[in-house]
Write a protein that binds this DNA or RNA. Sequence first.
DNA 1: CGAAGAACATTGCGCATTCAACATTTGCAG
DNA 2: CTGCAAATGTTGAATGCGCAATGTTCTTCG
Lengths: 158, 158
Amino acid sequence: MTRWLDDDEMRAWRGLVEVMAGVEADLEAELVERHGLAVGEYGVLVHLSEAEGEAMRMCDLAARLHLSPSGLTRRIDGLVRTGLVRREPSKEDRRVMRAVLTPAGRSAIHAAAPTHVDGVRRHLLDHLDRTQIRVLGQAWAAVQAARPNRAGAPKRTD
Amino acid sequence: MTRWLDDDEMRAWRGLVEVMAGVEADLEAELVERHGLAVGEYGVLVHLSEAEGEAMRMCDLAARLHLSPSGLTRRIDGLVRTGLVRREPSKEDRRVMRAVLTPAGRSAIHAAAPTHVDGVRRHLLDHLDRTQIRVLGQAWAAVQAARPNRAGAPKRTD
DNA sequence: CGAAGAACATTGCGCATTCAACATTTGCAG
DNA sequence: CTGCAAATGTTGAATGCGCAATGTTCTTCG
């Protein structure tokens, strides 16, 4: 027989879903309004700006963003069109295209990052005390440790 | 000047995003594979089954699911096509359409619920201890209390 | 070396979603 | 009572994403 969720578990689960949905919606709205950037696009810029040479292989970037190859191709299409990212064929492997941050892209991420961080604080962290924040971090670590390694080992830019 | 996230805060935030994405993807895959139901469709059935008379106004249902009116119209289209939900014009207000759970819909939700709950346990709750679960619940409550009431007061079917 | 198979990026197609426009109905102000 | 604004649901156009198929390049193994 199924063991249903008790009150604590229900609050933990439904709260997670609700809060996450709300916070993400707010962040999206603020980022779009103030910088014309969708959260998905912001994610691309964040990863590129943190990467060696401000560039990543399409393949790796897609995995990091939990995006399908075709999904990333089109997201990059958009960022190329707005001039924030540039495509560059790899010299070492001619199958590979690298997405490279342009100067405009660097400006955009520098402008948008404070908005994003501020949003995370205002909509989430400001309402939690230090203990709760630490417990959250430990909880996610426990869950991720138990999870088959989706985006395994070999990156340190996170 | 922007106050950036410290290590604890970063772990709490990025972990939240990552874990949520992973768990939702797993739940979706399992639900689709075993019951042919997307999480979004499951959500409709859950809300209807918990509602008075197993029916809700389109309008209220859309708000509860954080979905636009047109988005809900089309999601219900799908569920009507597969016979899990039925449309019924309201008697009191002729602008209103009510989405009603059919017997097939009731069967579907009863069949799928154990899969969903089991998934929430296996992918999330099983890796947390009781203290962490309670802190999570309290954290979400704090965040939601501070949030302008998106889905305000007058419902008790949650 | 040479061929088979894997890896990478893109494209076509279908599906789900949102926004804007619309038609109908209700509620309210005067 | 009248008329106008708000509420409700649907449709059309546009967007974003995933899956499958494709073309190219690399790698591995006989």
